[in-house]
């Protein structure tokens, strides 16, 4: 058999109703909910050396930890310093501390940081804006056993799990995030005419 098995009941839309019905309902619930952006900013951050530490610290938000960790890794690949040669990278970060990435080498992300908008006892972590961290094993490096961001800001010893970032170079990412605008995609379509943009 070269055909799908299909649960036909799940494919049936209600008689006479556009398939958009459920979406519109769902959209209304979302719009009515409390999606208020945080206006406050924070000077404190939590640091996790790996996903497990984040999950242990936030047992009810393990999925969030996972997403933040993956986001941090992804950002890290974009932000981390790039070296054309492995030896150059290892000179700065230590033997075995670098990995290849599209014909370059970058230091391995050995931790990540989440801003804390809450207090020391009641965390309110910003899982949406993780930052990847690394450190160096070279004694001569300023980042020796110290947490370092991709752009080289130093955040204290690697045994620490908190950081004061008020004076660091992280200013651009803290504070509230505003919606700057919409409509930056979709313009090409209005200048052409077709029933569909597929092919």
């Amino acid at each position: 058999m070269k055909r799908s098995r299909i649960d036909i009941g799940r494919m049936r839309k209600e008689q006479g109703k556009a398939s958009l019905g459920t979406l519109i309902k769902y959209g209304a619930v979302v719009a009515g909910g409390a999606f208020v952006l945080k206006g406050c900013s924070s000077d404190e951050a939590r640091i996790y050396a790996n996903l497990n530490e984040c999950e242990d610290d936030n047992p009810t938000e393990q999925a969030q930890c996972n997403i933040a960790y993956q986001d941090a890794l992804r950002e890290w690949r974009n932000e981390a310093p790039r070296y054309p040669r492995l030896s150059d990278c290892e000179y700065d970060f230590g033997d075995g501390s670098c990995r290849p990435l599209s014909q370059h080498f970058i230091p391995i992300m050995t931790g990540f940081m989440l801003l804390n908008n809450g207090s020391d006892t009641e965390l309110d972590l910003d899982f949406d804006r993780p930052r990847g961290l690394t450190s160096s094993k070279r004694r001569y490096s300023p980042a020796y056993n110290r947490w370092s961001t991709a752009d080289g800001a130093l955040l204290g010893n690697t045994y620490q799990r908190k950081a004061d970032i008020s004076k660091s170079q992280l200013q651009p990412t803290k504070g509230s995030a505003r919606v700057m605008g919409r409509g930056g995609f979709g313009r090409t379509v209005s200048s052409r005419s077709s029933s569909s943009w597929g092919g």
């Binding site: 949406d128 804006r129 990412t173 509230s176 995030a177 505003r178 919606v179 700057m180 605008g181 919409r182 409509g183 930056g184 995609f185 979709g186 313009r187 379509v189």
Partner: peptide
């Protein structure tokens, strides 16, 4: 597509 917004933190 034209409803996609951009936030100040580039998201």
């Amino acid at each position: 597509v034209d409803e996609i917004g951009l936030r100040s933190d580039n998201r």
